[in-house]
Amino acid sequence: MLKIYPENPNPKDVRQVVEVLRNGGIIIYPTDTVYGLGCDITNAKAVEKIARYKNVQVEKSNFSFICSDLSHLSGFSKPVSNQVFKMLKTYLPGPFTFILNANNNVPKYFKGKKKTVGVRIPDNSIIIEIAKELGNPIMSTSIHDDDEIIEYSTDPELIHERFSDFADLVIDGGYGDNIPSTIVDCTEEIPVVIRQGKGIFEE
């Protein structure tokens, strides 16, 4: 377990996390919504391990990619209209997942018959700095709680207790939220909210 402060993430700590990712490790990290579970998107074995844990096939999963900024994001999606670009610029970084048309940079094992990719730029400096240092997006899926009332785990110590046998590193970035991101589908001309979460999207 590694404590990192969101106000000013220590570069040494960030490099330590990136080293774990580059070695095919799985990490748990804070975002601006719920805590996430993820790995480097280019590491097929780590991606497969998470998919098995979540009991889904990679190509049928709804894993999203965490990018460090808009130029990083644009490397994995087909060109978007000026209108969509302005919208992304308005809402990111923020508690949104945008579904875009994927380009050929998205690893084949993610695609299957799907031609889309879900992308996030969370308003959280810890995971942004990690993605920036890594140079690749981080595959992301939310951590769910077994509790019937609380859907998402928010306490990093309890998360560590529960996932220490599975994840190689848990980042303690303070308490997380228990509301997931708002998902907006931008693959057609008019963006559509397909899951209402923390972010308020003005359609």
Rank of each mutant, 00 (worst) to 15 (best):
181 S>A: 15
104 N>K: 12
184 V>S: 09
96 F>A: 11
86 K>F: 11
123 D>E: 12
155 D>E: 14
111 K>P: 00
101 N>D: 15
157 E>W: 09
125 S>G: 00
153 S>E: 12
84 V>K: 15
87 M>I: 10
173 G>R: 10
108 K>P: 02
136 N>P: 04
105 N>K: 13
175 Y>S: 12
84 V>G: 01
89 K>Y: 14
117 V>K: 04
107 P>R: 10
127 I>C: 06
155 D>V: 07
159 I>E: 12
93 P>V: 13
106 V>I: 04
159 I>V: 14
152 Y>T: 01
142 S>F: 05
103 N>D: 12
116 T>C: 03
139 M>Q: 02
122 P>G: 03
94 G>W: 13
112 G>N: 05
183 I>P: 00
176 G>D: 01
125 S>Y: 00
135 G>L: 01
93 P>K: 13
141 T>D: 01
130 I>Y: 02
151 E>P: 04
136 N>F: 09
146 D>G: 15
176 G>C: 08
113 K>C: 02
163 F>Q: 07
128 I>P: 00
179 I>R: 13
152 Y>L: 02
174 G>I: 03
178 N>C: 02
96 F>M: 09
162 R>T: 08
136 N>K: 05
109 Y>C: 06
114 K>N: 14
150 I>D: 02
158 L>Y: 10
175 Y>T: 07
149 I>L: 10
94 G>D: 13
